[in-house]
Design a protein around this nucleic acid. Structure first.
Lengths: 256, 256
DNA sequence: TTGCTCCTCACGTCACGTGAGGTGGC
DNA sequence: TTGCTCCTCACGTCACGTGAGGTGGC
């Protein structure tokens, strides 16, 4: 008696919150926002409590979370919101960094176009621009892990080595990484001979790079210690594959 | 005789270009990249010319174009590449600006969380933060169109008027804009009485805002002159709807 | 009775990833 | 003959937009 809360039909409620009716249907369907009640005719009846929840959903959506993530966040009260928001912030910052690289490439391409008017569009040069932008970003990011001396040495090294040889190494690395990713995906046991062959090749390549310098090895270790921190464009594999590789390499080392 | 060009099977070609086989299938299917030949067994045979085209596709993809746009760009030789790249640059810059707003909101929310430890997450406050960030961005953008005096006056005005009244106006604007968008979408004739009613309301609201000040009206005109330049978050309707509205308003004015 | 709102399917979007099921050359 | 690669469907993705076709209260 007197306990009748004001309810809203979908259209009303949608207008109130500034979303479409279809959105509310969808949120109901996926369980993200179930209306408080349903009328005898099957009509959705929303309350002000529902409005609060919807606003929370929209807030998190604005912050870039997916609907699945939003559901998890709102349904588990013990969830660490601070951590989630912080992670989200970092993710978006990386996204921005990627877009800024693209803008930079576009700018340099436009400069090039302004330079040679009337000439045909030089695709090869644009590819070089993109590679340059990406290399810059990578170098900038790596600079925080290497000491100045190491950076100087690596730079000198790369200048002394034949570009063709460098390209070949790069491709070998890519193939090796593809093999490792594939092995991890297929869940081959780390002590499988095929996987051990990959571990061997990996170890050899690392040794070739560090030339036995323990400081350089330590830098590499720092770089790969948190794969999720690494910008995705130059992250060879995710954290899980990384662990898998580590296991295989450990087995390989223990067997020698 | 001797005119046999080297060809590649899909997997080979895919590895060569660093894409997946499925991607090549898809590009073939959509007509974006058709292999030069097909073997008698129905196998796709790619040539180095195909590789060049694929690299162009990937370049444009990196620059943020959709596959449809890429197809149009590559298939129409007279296309104005410079204009396309410049537009793309601007689009990405706007995307970045939006993401930066989100980051700002996340940062301020995190600061708030750091302040009141252990307290319950204050959703209402986060909403205010988001609104604040958006208002800042809008003010910043509008500042380039209004004169300092106009800005000062508008600011003073908003301080003198009851916030509830402001909210009400905002909602009226939103409803009006929704009506206009709807009329344009349904292609009602601009001289339709219903559309004329919208034009009337629009004109009245504009007059209420400018208070007959021609300088203010001129600023508004500048602001709305290129709707596509306006950040999408506070663009009420696209260029086409804008034109439609203009037509309706012109008819309305001519009838008085 | 006429509109209006409500409902539930269900297809389309974008650029592929991921099997399923089957064929052909080494 | 056994593998390997190739092929063509065809479903799934993410968050809805957009009809289609039908029912119920004002």
């Amino acid at each position: 008696v007197g306990n009748v809360e004001k309810t809203f039909l979908v259209r009303e409620f949608a207008k109130l919150a500034g979303v479409s009716v279809r959105t509310l249907h969808y949120y109901d369907q996926t369980g993200l926002l179930r209306p408080a009640k349903t009328s005898s005719a099957g009509h959705r009846l929303y309350t002000t409590a529902d409005l609060l929840r919807l606003q929370q959903i929209l807030t998190l959506k604005y912050m870039g979370f997916s609907l699945t993530e939003i559901g998890e966040l709102l349904n588990s009260p013990g969830y660490d919101v601070l951590r989630a928001l912080d992670g989200q912030k970092r993710a978006i910052e990386q996204q921005i960094a990627g877009l800024q690289q693209t803008v930079k490439a576009l700018e340099r391409t436009l400069e090039m176009l302004a330079g040679d008017e009337g000439e045909k569009f030089n695709w090869e040069y644009v590819q070089l621009i993109i590679q340059g932008v990406q290399a810059e970003a990578k170098a900038y990011w790596l600079a925080q892990y290497y000491t100045p001396e190491q950076l100087a040495e690596l730079k000198e090294r790369s200048q002394q080595i034949d570009p063709r040889q460098q390209l070949k190494w790069q491709q070998e690395w890519q193939n090796l990484n593809a093999g490792i990713t594939d092995a991890a995906r297929r869940k081959l046991p780390p002590d499988d001979p095929a996987v051990q062959a990959l571990a061997k090749e990996y170890t050899e390549k690392i040794n070739l790079f560090t030339k036995g310098d323990p400081a350089l090895l330590e830098s590499l270790r720092r770089i790969y210690s948190q794969p999720d921190q690494m910008p995705s464009e130059f992250r060879p594999y995710d954290a899980e594959t990384q662990k898998y590789l580590q296991k295989a390499v450990d087995i390989f080392n223990s067997k020698r």
